[in-house]
Every structure is written in C-alpha cells, then in structure tokens.
C-alpha cells in the first residue's frame, strides 16, 4: 500500500452524528488541511509519479469521507481551480431521503461539509447546499444541516416551493426542452454535484447526471412524458456541473435509490470536471447487484457520451489515485 503523503485523517473514525466538532476546532483543521493540500498541489509533498503530468481527468481518493473528498478535489488542482474569490456556489448533494448516512441513500454529510469548507477557503462569496427532496424535506436535510452547523451561515436548504424555480429553456434538449430550474442555480457561478453512489431501479445508477433532477421543480414530467434516460441527458445539456464529486464512501449496490440495499464500504471519493466521466468511472469501479458493468450499459451515460456531453471512454482518460 502506498504511503499517504498526508498525516492522519482529521476525523478519527467517529460516526458522523456522534461527535461534534466545535467550530474553531473544525476551522483549525480545515486550515491545516488546506495548507497540506496546497503544499501537495505545488509539489512540495506529493510523490513524483503523481506530478508526472498535468491535471488528470478523474481523481480518486481513498480514505475517510472528509479527507478523501479534499484529496480527490486536490488531485484536480484543488477547489481554487473551480471557485474564484467572490463566486456564488451551489453544491448539490443527494439529500432526498430522511435516512441516516449509514444506509448510503444520501451523500455523506462529511463529504458535503468538506466541499463547503473548501469553497469557503477558495473565497466563495456565497455557498448554498440545495436539493429538492421528495418528501419530509426538513427530515431529509437534517443530517446534512447538522454536519454543516459548524459554519455560521445556514447553507443547507430544501426548496419545496415553485417560487424558488424559474422557467428555463433547454436549448440542446432533443425532446425535453423546457423546465423550471432553481433560481439559485441559474444565478450561481459554480455548480458542484456531489451525488451519492447508488443503484437505481429504473436508470441503473443514480449519480451526478440523474442527480440534476434534484435541481428542477417538476421532475415527474420526466417519468411521465419522456423516456427517463433521454430526458436526463437533455437536462444535463443544460445543467452541467463545473465539478463532480461522487461520494462512494459507501456504495448502495442494490435496492437503490431508496434502500435498504447492500451497502459496500468503499471509502472512496471520485472527482472530475466531466460529469459523464465521473459517473462512468463510478459504474466501472464497483459491483452493482454483485456484477460488473461497463459504463455504456447505463443508458443515460451512453447517450450523454454519444451526444458529446462528456466521455465514458475511460481507457482514454487519465485517472489519478491517492490514499489519505
């Protein structure tokens, strides 16, 4: 096993809900981490092979949720290469079920928190963590709200009213050509998708692309009036995240999207600028229903690749891995 260039993880194996850091302690650790990552990115700390070429297409980090998220983004050049000072950022985790993170149906709140912290360090003027949960909105977002309570600002919101959405054309949509998108997303400078790695009974998997359905008001029409996979690709031609961070710390390998299903403890975070590549890599890396799949076997990933929204030809993409 490759020795991690990073010191011990900052969170020493505590369960997400049991131990609460106070804000000062948390920020101190953030700062320490930020310095290390900066050091890593500038080549002071990282071992040679990782420095060999420029920024990879996909960065994969293994470790505890927070540090792994930070390291995966670090492999792509760190958050500062996505978020400029003064930017408005929307982070879209999957927080659409009122379940504890152990069930792997929502994005691990520690991953979400780390992303928010990194955006803050990069100088984001406004960070909002948004989703459109299916039901019991407050219960759905509570775990994430708790984890992010270390920040002064209340970032986590479930937008359950049409007022928050604005009618938007989808110019590149083949059939699905108009939808109501969260105003915050339309206003944002940076959109970060932070899906949980989950199986999905209708679309095979639900990752960053399927997750974009949580940014619109009426997703029922996608089930009702279109082929779901096609409509997802149409939607993703409009909503393209600047950065995708797939939380595969736990993978819901069966029984998705709602669970309960088989949870694989994988301690992995996958980051990419390319939503198709990130999703494709996630499909390829893990077992789904006890089997291995190629990215092209997920319809919406294949269609997105064919339509040039991103790349699923992993063999031609550069992947860099790190253990933290």
């Amino acid at each position: 096993m490759k020795k991690s260039p990073f010191p011990e993880p900052w969170f020493h194996g505590e369960i997400w809900s049991e131990k609460k850091l106070d804000r000062r302690e948390f920020l101190k650790k953030q700062l320490k981490g930020a310095l290390l990552i900066t050091a890593g990115a500038t080549g002071i700390y990282l071992p040679k092979p990782i420095l060999a070429s420029g920024v990879p297409d996909i960065g994969i980090a293994r470790g505890k949720p927070g540090p792994a998220a930070r390291a995966a983004v670090g492999l792509l050049g760190g958050m500062k290469s996505f978020v400029k000072p003064g930017d408005k950022v929307v982070i879209k985790p999957n927080i659409t079920f009122p379940h504890p993170p152990e069930e792997a149906t929502i994005t691990n709140p520690l991953v979400t928190r780390e992303l928010a912290a990194m955006c803050k360090e990069a100088g984001a003027a406004r960070i909002r963590v948004l989703d459109h949960p299916v039901e019991q909105a407050q219960a759905c977002i509570q775990a994430t709200k708790d984890a992010l309570s270390v920040f002064k600002k209340d970032m986590v919101h479930a937008l359950m009213q049409k007022d928050f959405y604005e009618s938007t054309p989808i110019p590149k949509g083949l059939k699905f050509k108009q939808t109501d998108v969260m105003q915050d997303v339309l206003e944002a400078d940076v959109l970060i998708a932070a899906p949980a790695a989950k199986s999905h009974a209708m679309t095979g998997v639900t990752l960053s692309m399927k997750g974009m359905m949580g940014l619109i008001w009426d997703r029922m029409t996608m089930h009702r009036d279109y082929d779901l996979d096609e409509a997802i690709v149409d939607l993703c031609s409009l909503l393209k995240p600047d950065l995708v961070v797939v939380d595969a710390t736990r993978v819901l390998s069966t029984g998705g999207p709602w669970g309960p299903g088989k949870v694989l403890e994988k301690d992995t975070v996958i980051a990419s600028k390319d939503m198709v590549a990130a999703d494709a890599k996630t499909v390829q890396m893990f077992q789904w229903y006890g089997q291995r799949f190629k990215p092209r076997q997920v319809d919406h990933i294949r269609m997105a690749h064919e339509r040039g929204l991103g790349r699923m030809d992993l063999e031609n993409l550069t992947v860099r891995k790190i253990e933290v």
């Binding site: 079920f97 152990e102 069966t254 309960p260």
Partner: peptide, 12 residues
C-alpha cells in the same frame, strides 16, 4: 420502513 431517527434498516 425508514426515517431519520428510526433504527437502521438492515439489508437482507
């Protein structure tokens, strides 16, 4: 079957 605060649902 589910809900925050419920006991963890064990997958079978």
């Amino acid at each position: 079957r589910r809900g925050r605060g419920d006991r963890l649902v064990h997958y079978q």
